[in-house]
Design a protein around this nucleic acid. Structure first.
Length: 321
DNA sequence: CCGCGCCCGAGAGGAATGTA
DNA sequence: TACATTCCTCTCGGGCGCGG
């Protein structure tokens, strides 16, 4: 059984590394007969698109299938890499070809991984981010962050916390990249805070991937960002009722929002906009840009705040230059 | 030369059965 | 119940022949 498994793996590997390989050569490399190879190819044909190229041109995969047998996720790669140490005690019982077959599979895996890394590097080069005005260097930490997210590895970082003007080292399990307002944010588990936190990518001063693998457990990004207007999260549940004038109603409907509002058209063409958010600031900033074309109906508390703010605003312009 | 289907026999290993 | 024997099944190897 295991001998056959090894041979099948080896055939896949051989066809992958040498498309157009002949049955005779497959038989030699697997130390078996052509007849057995034909039988194995029959078995493989049910799970892999192998085709022969006609008289004398051997076997190869159809299309881009070549990646299929090794397209491992991190867990699979890890378990396979652990295989030699597990089977060490019974090693003498294994057939002769095992070591070379294993090495070839591992070599192919590493080659694929390298190719993936190169593609990833190109992708992160494509994502052009802005950088803070005060910083001259444009070090882009997208690559190590995306790599770490994909391979589920903890990152060792130096992060600048704007609100406390504090720079600290912290280990983070990176979960998701969240684009907001022309910026990227990283949502992940912070080992210092021992909780889920949101980090602004441009505030990282250093990011290094470690060898430590993490588990996301039952974290749900949709649930995490529920009722969050943009990125700033709060514990409150504020239900806003806002009216937009007929002039801007059309634009409001086209806004790409992260929180789904309830929209009601009024007979006069104005729009009633209802939404529940867990933090007020970002939502209010969004409202402000529409000036007199918007009116906060509820909660009354925010209606009053708005009134106070406008008084101050008028006061600024009322005293002359 | 090469691919491949068909057939048969050898050998291994497991299941079923027999025996003390 | 424990062990021995027989039977069955599966896999592999090899020969043969057809067809490209």
């Amino acid at each position: 059984m295991s001998e056959k498994m090894i041979r099948l793996l080896r055939i896949l590997n051989l066809i992958q590394s040498k498309p157009g390989i002949l049955a005779r050569e497959l038989a030699e490399r697997c130390e078996t007969t052509e007849r057995t190879i034909y039988r194995d190819l029959e078995t493989l044909s049910s799970i892999a698109p192998i085709s022969n190229m006609g008289h004398g041109k051997g076997y190869q995969f159809i299309g881009d299938f070549s990646l299929y047998p090794l397209n491992w996720d991190e867990q699979e790669a890890l378990s396979f890499s652990m295989l030699p140490s597990i089977i060490q005690p019974v090693k003498h019982m294994l057939p002769k070809g095992f070591d070379t077959a294993y090495e070839k599979v591992m070599a192919t895996y590493k080659k694929e991984k390298k190719q993936n890394d190169e593609i990833l590097k190109k992708v992160t080069d494509i994502i052009q981010m802005g950088s803070p005005a005060y910083r001259q260097d444009r070090t882009n930490f997208m690559l190590p962050i995306i790599q770490a997210i994909l391979s589920k590895k903890t990152i060792q970082t130096i992060y600048h916390t704007q609100s406390r003007n504090d720079t600290s080292e912290r280990e983070i399990d990176p979960y998701y990249l969240v684009p907001r307002e022309q910026r990227f944010y990283l949502v992940g588990y912070c080992h210092v805070a021992k909780d889920i936190r949101t980090f602004r990518i441009s505030h990282f001063l250093d990011v290094r991937m470690t060898d430590q693998t993490f588990d996301m457990k039952d974290f749900n990004i949709r649930h995490y960002l529920k009722n969050t207007w943009s990125i700033e999260r709060g514990e409150k549940k504020i239900h806003f009722k806002v009216k937009f004038s007929p002039r801007v109603a059309r634009y409001i409907k086209e806004e790409e929002l992260f929180v789904i509002p309830k929209l009601t058209d009024n007979p006069d063409g104005s729009l009633l906009f209802e939404v529940t958010v867990n933090h007020d600031r970002e939502f209010l900033n969004w409202i402000y840009q529409y000036g007199p074309d918007t009116e906060i109906l509820e909660p009354k508390e925010y209606r009053d705040k708005m009134k106070e703010m406008l008084k101050k605003w008028i006061a600024v312009y009322g005293r002359g230059v």
